[in-house]
């Protein structure tokens, strides 16, 4: 939902970042306002996933230039956990398994960390159980998953549902979903997309990172950005995604080649 008077949640200006010695982001500009759904598309290696990790504060990436304002504050100064508590959420492409740590306990601790930041009271075990059971329905997840270790032995689809469950509990203002559609069959894709649509509101924003149009068939973006060579090359409406689907990425490569010569 595009509203001219909406608050700006995230403002990325000329963001540059490297991993080890390799520059990946070479000047990304992107502004996200409340109520909007953005999609960033691009080939493998275009820098899409790096963008999501840099925003979330992954220690392997070093920011070498540019700025990111999150609700007016310098996001890059904050620890990853502070970003999360303030309402920035990253849905991982490959959620890691954490043996020995109970999923339920993990969800409770993280939910309370976010609630504390919002000035809400901590939920005890019983109150949290009530909340989590209600939110489970958003992703149609079996409560049995709560009793297991975080993501341990979960199928690809179950891991992604667990990500959206976390999103439903943490109530983020900006949710970045990195290739949430990858590895999902069509039913799981519908469930996950249904969850994302359900959670979208005029107060929050979603940034979808994806390869394929098929996710955008079920979640309609307000803006589509095409990323290549560590930059956003082109921005348009949802029809840009369809154009990409039609014409492939070759023309993007050509535009990039021109740009890199200049």
């Amino acid at each position: 939902m595009i509203r001219p008077d909406a608050d700006t949640l995230l403002e990325i200006v000329d963001l540059q970042a490297r991993v080890e010695d390799k520059p990946i982001l070479k000047g990304v500009n992107l502004t996200i306002k409340a109520g909007e759904i953005h999609a960033v598309m691009g080939r493998n290696g275009s820098g899409k996933s790096t963008l999501s990790k840099v925003l979330a504060g992954h220690p392997a990436y070093t920011v070498t230039g540019g700025s990111v304002l999150y609700r007016g504050a310098n996001l890059l100064d904050l620890e990853p956990e502070q970003r999360a508590r303030l309402g920035l959420f990253l849905g991982f492409q490959y959620p890691v398994e954490i043996p020995g740590v109970s999923n339920l306990e993990f969800l409770r601790v993280s939910t309370n960390a976010r609630r504390g930041e919002k000035g809400e009271e901590e939920l005890d075990t019983f109150a949290f159980e009530d909340l989590v059971r209600e939110r489970l329905q958003v992703v149609q997840m079996d409560p049995a998953f709560l009793e297991r270790s975080v993501n341990e032995g979960f199928s690809g689809g179950e891991k992604k549902r667990n990500e959206i469950l976390q999103m439903a509990l943490l109530d983020p203002l900006v949710a970045i979903l990195d290739e949430t559609d990858s590895g999902l069959d069509i039913d799981a894709l519908r469930i996950v997309a249904g969850g994302v649509n359900h959670l979208a509101s005029p107060d929050n924003a979603t940034l979808l990172i994806t390869h394929y149009q098929r996710l955008l068939d079920v979640i309609t973006p307000d803006y589509v950005h095409v990323m290549a060579g560590g930059r956003i090359l082109r921005t348009g409406g949802k029809e840009l995604a369809l154009e990409l689907e039609d014409r492939g990425y070759d023309w993007v490569d050509q535009e990039l080649a021109v740009l890199e010569v200049v």
Partner: peptide
């Protein structure tokens, strides 16, 4: 590092993330 980052990205502080994993 990826496990720690995962927990951190859910609002759990670094030290608490380590201790959660160790006590698990």
């Amino acid at each position: 590092a990826d496990q720690l980052f995962y927990l951190q990205s859910r609002g759990i502080g670094f030290e608490e993330a380590v201790s959660m994993m160790v006590s698990g």
